[in-house]
Design a protein around this nucleic acid. Sequence first.
RNA 1: GCCUCCAUAGCUCAGUCGGUAGAGCGCGUCCUUGGUAAGGACGAGGUCACCGGUUCAAAUCCGGUUGGAGGCUCCA
Length: 641
Amino acid sequence: MGVKVKVSDGEDAGRVILSWLKQYHKELAKTAVAVKVGEALLDLTAPVPVGQELEVIGGDEPLGLEIIRHSTSHLLAQAVLRLFPEAKPTIGPAIESGFYYDFAMPRPFTDEDLGAIEAEMQKLVKQNQPISREEVDRAACIVQYRELGNPFKAEILEELPQPTVTLYRQGEFFDLCRGPHVPSTGRLGAFKLLSVAGAYWRGDEKRPMLQRIYGTAFPTKEALEAYLTQREEAKRRDHRRLGRELGLFIISPEVGAGLPLWMPKGAVVRYALETFLRGELTRRGYSPVYTPHIGKLDLYRTSGHYPYYKDDQFPAIQFEEERGEEGYLLKPMNCPHHIQIYKAEMHSYRDLPLRLAEFGTVYRYEQSGELGGLTRVRGFTQDDAHIFLTPEQLDGEFKATVGLILYVLNTLELSDFRVRVSLRDPNSDKYVGDPANWELAQAAILKAVVDLDMDYTVAEGEAAFYGPKLDFLVRDSIGREWQLGTVQVDYNLPQRFGLEYIGEDGQAHRPVMIHRAPFGSLERFVGLLIEHYAGAFPVWMAPVQVVVIPISERHHDYAAQVAATLRALPARVEVDARSESMKYKIREAQLQKVPYMLVVGDKEAEATTVGVRALKTGDLGALPLAEFAEQLKGEAAIPGG
RNA sequence: GCCUCCAUAGCUCAGUCGGUAGAGCGCGUCCUUGGUAAGGACGAGGUCACCGGUUCAAAUCCGGUUGGAGGCUCCA
């Protein structure tokens, strides 16, 4: 919230806000970037609204920061046009971490260009050019942009409803913009251009590719520096880096892009998560099943996966000629297999809900440019389940499923997530099924989030092709958002596969399905957990829970004895018996994020104690071995187990 | 898939103007046997991602392939 000041009646009429501020609120004038009057945002170059209350927006608050960034994107465009007169500016908004500007260019920008552009921007800052706003006729503006050979701006203008639009002008540069902007280029300066990228006009890969320049800006140099430093630090907890350093997983080009291999230590983390979830599923009445990795093409024609995913899956396995058989498909989803299990038996309403769960591995051929680390892969394992239920049970079961996901996220201390209700885009034809069923399913989800009092956003067009869903999204270390858990309501697949149950009335009825995955994919989930914990997993998930460090060779026997005692708990224990100094071994264990280091020397061997050093708190002194074992047993236990 | 950048030892990276390779870590051997974040010495290890081209000569220049990083509406 900005500071509120009142403009007195009378003599101030006709002045500009900035000069008024300079006279009456000198300090505010220095940091102000715009003002708010009621709901309207005004430039500092606008006339003083006499008799009204002004809220002065500073560069240090979110709205002001956005304005600074937006103005910096204009500055970028001005500099680019000076250096590259052939560039056609298109759009240049402020974004969460800075800003970008897209240009149509005969040739792409290179990293070298960025330096020159940045220097030009600084020059413009020094010149302190005033930024002014003017209203122009929309139709005339369209003509003007067409004459300049810029169809992009013209296209934007054509879609605007109002008869007049606003232009912002600084020196020779002008840009169609709703504003507001800082009053002059001298107010900018703490910025940095970060990268160039191709970007399709309006995100549509069928339209021309533009050249995008990303940058960021802050009100002060200090804030900019702090941001850049923090960005570097975040990179250090990148799961791809930690995955290698901690020996958790690799992606081998020999095996294939997007096909991760779990190394022994990474497998321990995954195994612990699976064990945790299996316990929870048993408690909640799920039935484990196993199904194969492939299925007949026809199965996926019936489900609709095959046509829907045609470009996003590995090619079908075809050998009609040799064997006279129809093709098979690597499964992109587990539901058709689980549906066959349901269909294998006649079900009474008394059997429902039937909850079939499987850690099911699926394969999707993601575009090569989308792949990255564990967060976007081509083969991954879902902690999947399909719940078959009567329509009356939907409400309660949906909420129970959301409850499971919240429990899982809470146990793993993941609190920084957001919830999205993903609905169908009514104008798209990529969805299957009867609109009436969609309405039912969407209503069920919206009722649940309201009943559960959850904060959520609605995203039209994000639904699965067979039904709407509730998604849980988290951010990675560089701020990208990823979908983890999901709960989906589906009236369509039961229909496509002709599923039935016998109701109380003795008649056949159609069940509803819930698809759900609390982790989503084990690969992505572990990837984000690595970043969440910066590699320092809680004891129950840690690949190595304890390293025993004998001080010298004569303590090796006692170290082995300590290890054997702890392994019997059970616990994952290693003895570092290398001929290295104790300091060296401690350093290594710290870097490997091992929760406990047990230093054992003469004193410990004598008294059957261990010198405990904890990863986060350092040296804790000696503890009787039995006592440490008892404590470790508690911390190593699978939650809920 | 498309745009930019990148690929040198297991890992992180030097390598000038084209003249067939270097460091640190890690690994092996030996010395050292230590009290809470790197003890020392020696040694092994590279078809400079792959394929082709230019050149007397290519890690270096050019083209292609594979793989990696960032990005591809957070709307004027």
